[in-house]
Design a protein around this nucleic acid. Structure first.
Lengths: 363, 363
DNA sequence: AAGTCTATGGCAATCGTTTGCCATGACCAT
DNA sequence: ATGGTCATGGCAAACGATTGCCATAGACTT
């Protein structure tokens, strides 16, 4: 039996330790620790000596050792609603981007907890939460993970919800004004003269669907239109299958006898595939049909024709979510679960126009 | 001076510990540890008792304590080339998705190290590497971060490069056949009758630009066309500004006297904005100009007209990269830096057609 | 010059796990 | 019945940092 343990370990040095820095600088380990972290506790000259030594050795503190000792990590975990790529919408990447920038500024690290929401992923998320890896959570457009009797709600972690309003369940939330934004877009279509609408829904009963459709109805009410002025399509598929939703909606559209003149799509992807398909079928946008959609994907500007869309303030929302989360992390006191609404903005492009008189009977 | 430390700490219990599980199960801590991790080292009955106790308490092992003790984490870090959202391309999200799925299956956790490549981000990446947070790295389409005299190359971490071939510098790489794919696409355009081309470049001197443009020239050579048969555009902006590249290229295109009949764009985003802009200017695709691009974004299918594109095998590439990385992590032996090429696939859609005779003189 | 105060540095315990080594008991063979 | 083997469980020392508490030295006051 060869005594190889010690030698083997020596082979992989895992870098210089704080003790090495201390030795080189000629001070105690604790002094190094304080010099590197605490302000003002260490003489300026000593600090300089230590900094030099650390730089010379290329010292990097071990994050796990520190985390273990202080009982907390500096990792913020993002829980995504599901798969990351579907269609052309960049909402999630944009949000991640904004969150990451804000977190970095505050010295935190972003960790993507999941890219799916199957059982294995949920378990994994909970392990990150309960295992002390994450210090806080931002959850995007979805309910809290829950499996094996454990729920993220009871992990003792600060949580902020984005895109989905969960403030009623006690989770601070950052959302946009889905309802008002859609109401405004609908009102604009009404103003242009449209009186008959086609609404492309996401999953039925979903928060966003309720809010957005509610916005349509509110606009109708304000204009004195009956609820029957809108035909709903979709409602079965998830937002992540938006291209398919748009295609099915197009099939449905051509079968309608008395055709709507305006389409309200609840995501850009739906609008894009819908517009493509009805284009192939000979309908023109905006001559025959006006379209407005939701998300504000950059690519909408380059569609044919350029697509009107409701731009979500993802960057501000991300910043706000991080601010709320850090606030909850740093203050121990339980603040009242807040709800922050950041308004969306309607971008009007060529896909919206006045309806052609008599169009809906022309086919 | 109130003695509050102990009480304060007790207030935030940070969940049950292994010791609690041991007590409840009536065994030693070490037995719990072995039961939960090692196979076969513990009696089946004991193990069952321990599992029960753990479940009953909702016990989750502390990842940092384990990581500290065993000297390694189970976090794989992804280094991105820069900002995550620009345009409609879903390459990066798709890759992340594929990587994440593969990693989860092997019990690893994915961590996005950065969403930008400024100095602060590079420093952060290196901290993650040298601070023991990451166990391995997958780097996407970019060079190794390097700052303050530290380089990712010397962090002692296994690294795999994706999309960019760095095998010559000793980094195992997973790439697609940029050159051959573009050669094939160009050859197809030549076969259709095109003899004069417009090439939309990414940043000049970039690996992808060299490879892709090389593919164009190879196709020319095979067909006996001179190198002057192609006009290069762009070369100044980054791939992340692809929409802008396409717009500028369109401006350039209209100013060309003797017009190309086919466009080879090195990203879908360029192609999309280019097509949109020249459409506004009265050029038709594919009647006046054929277009093919690179990336295989799903949205291309719904462009007007549907856009031919070279689809990168992102999913397979992601899987391959993870496989290579885990291999390097598990085997201690230094394997020869490998290079794995996974072929792309040309998707032909309506944006490619035979050139209209005499078009290039018609304006 | 002596006493007091403050700034700084050092010791050692601690975070929650893993794991080498040893002790114990069961089981088997002789 | 006795000795040997093996499976199992327990003790305690790590892993690398942080931090409460105390010691010390220098500055300041009178």
């Amino acid at each position: 039996m060869v005594k190889k343990t010690k030698e083997m370990l020596d082979m992989e040095p895992s870098g210089p330790l704080m003790a090495d820095v201390a030795k080189l600088a000629g001070v105690a380990i604790s002094t190094v620790s304080r010099a590197l972290a605490n302000p003002g506790r260490v003489n300026e000259k000593t600090r300089a000596k230590i900094d030099d030594a650390a730089k010379q050795l290329g010292y990097t503190p071990n994050a796990m050792a520190r985390g273990l000792r202080v009982g907390k990590s500096n990792v913020i975990m993002i829980v995504l609603p599901g798969s990351l790529y579907h269609g052309a919408s960049q909402i999630v990447p944009q949000v991640l981007q904004a969150i990451n920038v804000s977190l970095l500024e505050s010295g935190y690290t972003l960790m993507i907890a999941n890219l799916a929401r199957d059982e294995a992923s949920e378990r994994h998320i909970l392990n990150l939460a309960f295992g002390g890896t994450a210090r806080g959570t931002i959850i995007l457009a979805s309910k809290l993970p829950e499996v094996d009797g454990r729920s993220l709600a009871h992990a003792g972690l600060p949580i902020v919800s984005m895109l989905l309003d969960m403030s009623a369940s006690g989770v601070p939330s950052v959302v946009t004004n889905d309802r008002e934004a859609v109401r405004a877009a609908t009102a604009e279509l009404i103003r242009l003269g449209h009186r008959r609408f086609f609404y492309l829904a996401g999953p039925e009963g979903n928060y966003h669907d309720i809010e957005r459709f509610g916005g349509v109805l509110e606009a109708f009410q304000a204009a004195g239109l009956p609820e029957t002025a809108v035909v709903r399509s979709g409602g079965k598929l998830d937002y992540q299958q938006s291209f398919e939703i748009g295609l099915r909606a197009a099939e449905e559209f051509v079968r309608l006898g008395y055709k709507p003149t305006a389409v309200i799509a609840t995501s850009d992807d739906m609008a894009i595939s819908f517009m493509s398909r009805i284009g192939e079928m000979g309908f023109g946008v905006p001559e025959d049909i006006s379209i407005v959609s939701f998300d504000g994907s950059p690519v909408c500007a380059f569609c044919f024709p350029p697509l009107s869309t409701i731009e979500q303030p993802v960057e501000e929302m991300g910043k706000a979510a991080v601010a709320m989360l850090l606030d909850a992390i740093e203050k121990t006191g339980e603040p009242a679960p807040a709800r922050r609404v950041i308004p969306s903005r309607l971008i009007i492009r060529k896909s919206m126009a006045m309806p052609r008189v008599g169009f809906h009977t022309s086919l």
